[in-house]
Amino acid sequence: MDKSSLPCHVGIIMDGNGRWANLRGRPRVEGHKQGAHRTKEIIEAAAELGVKVLTLYAFSIENWKRPEFEVDTLMDLLDYYLQTEILELLQKGVVFKVIGNREKLPDKIRYLIDQAEDMTASNTGMLLLMAISYGGRDDILRAVQKMALNGEDIANLSEEHFVEHLDTAGCGMVDLIIRTGGEKRISNFLIWQAAYAELYFTDTLWPDFTKDDFYDAMEDYKSRQRRFGAIPEDIDTLKVTPTKCT
């Protein structure tokens, strides 16, 4: 693939695990397990292409409303992932970070997250953000609360200063959001950071979303014209401006 004009920051809403299992007559948890295997493949594909930041929507703050058994299974999968996959990420140079409301997470999960972040902090490769117990509105609310607790002048707040208090501080805005599973909404995912993101929807369920499907999304992004609200002087001569990843 021609790697010019690729997005710097990609977010993925990994939807369709439960439906994948239901279509095969299996318990929903089997879909989540298969989805976890798929996640590893897509992380590798993004790193190989030179994506600078990859944010995966693993568990939304609304997902706490799901049946207790399913939530427990998801936490067990996260526990397993944090203990078995981090060494491989370390070897590949990936930096791992979790965004979201950690207060709701079990103590063991929080400990494993801290450990994984510390282990990969000195890496220089792709930044992998895992959105766990995350909600875009909650992210914004917590940012305002942090500023208020710090006694900052919120009345004269600038956008540049505000983004420094979001969970994604220093990661840049999102260039592309991919959602699998057929739904066409962003479901409270990075709602500030995705203000001008390109959106890519596919009917493919997450456990079936392959590396080639990911490449298709990248090619689709490259064909788009991003204007960020501006009106070009001559629409006929407008050319796609390559994304500058720094």
Rank of each mutant, 00 (worst) to 15 (best):
M173R: 12
Q225G: 02
F201D: 03
M147R: 05
A45P: 02
K211A: 01
I99S: 11
Y57W: 15
A116M: 05
A21F: 08
F69H: 14
N22P: 02
D76L: 06
W64H: 11
E68S: 13
F69K: 15
K97Q: 10
K108W: 09
W192S: 06
F189P: 01
S187W: 08
E183R: 13
F228N: 06
I177A: 04
L23Q: 15
Y221T: 03
Y221N: 04
I231D: 05
T237H: 12
A46I: 01
G11P: 01
K104S: 10
F228E: 12
A45I: 01
L149M: 13
D153L: 13
Q193G: 02
T73R: 07
P67D: 13
P7F: 01
K104V: 04
G31V: 02
Y81R: 10
N101W: 15
G125I: 11
I140N: 05
F69C: 11
L157K: 12
R19Y: 10
D2L: 02
Y111C: 10
I113V: 10
E103V: 14
F214N: 03
T210Q: 08
H32S: 07
L127C: 13
E152W: 08
N17T: 08
D234S: 06
G31K: 01
Y57T: 07
W192P: 02
D167M: 01
I132C: 04
F96D: 00
K211D: 00
D79S: 12
P207V: 02
Y57P: 05
P207N: 05
A45D: 04
L77F: 05
L56Q: 07
I86Y: 09
S158Q: 11
D114Q: 14
I86P: 09
K244S: 11
L166G: 02
G11S: 07
E103W: 13
Y81N: 12
S133C: 09
K104N: 06
Y80V: 09
L166E: 00
D216K: 08
H37I: 07
V174N: 00
A46E: 01
R142Y: 13
R179V: 10
V98T: 05
A45L: 03
G16P: 10
L87S: 14
E41Y: 06
R226F: 06
N22S: 11
Q115C: 11
D208F: 12
Q91N: 14
A169D: 03
D213N: 15
K65C: 09
E88C: 11
Y111H: 15
V98C: 06
S187Q: 10
S4M: 03
D15C: 14
M173I: 05
A36C: 09
D213W: 00
V29R: 04
T120D: 08
A169N: 09
C171Y: 04
G16N: 14
T84I: 06
L82F: 05
L128W: 03
E233I: 04
P106H: 12
L105F: 10
Q83N: 14
V174G: 01
D2K: 03
G93D: 10
A148R: 14
E219Y: 11
I132T: 04
I132M: 01
R224K: 09
P27F: 05
T124I: 15
G25W: 09
D213A: 08
V98H: 00
E160P: 02
G182W: 04
F69W: 08
E233S: 04
K52T: 11
T246H: 10
I132N: 00
R26F: 10
K52P: 02
D15A: 13
F96I: 08
P242W: 03
K184N: 03
G151E: 14
P242G: 09
L87K: 12
F59R: 00
G18V: 00
S60Y: 02
N150C: 10
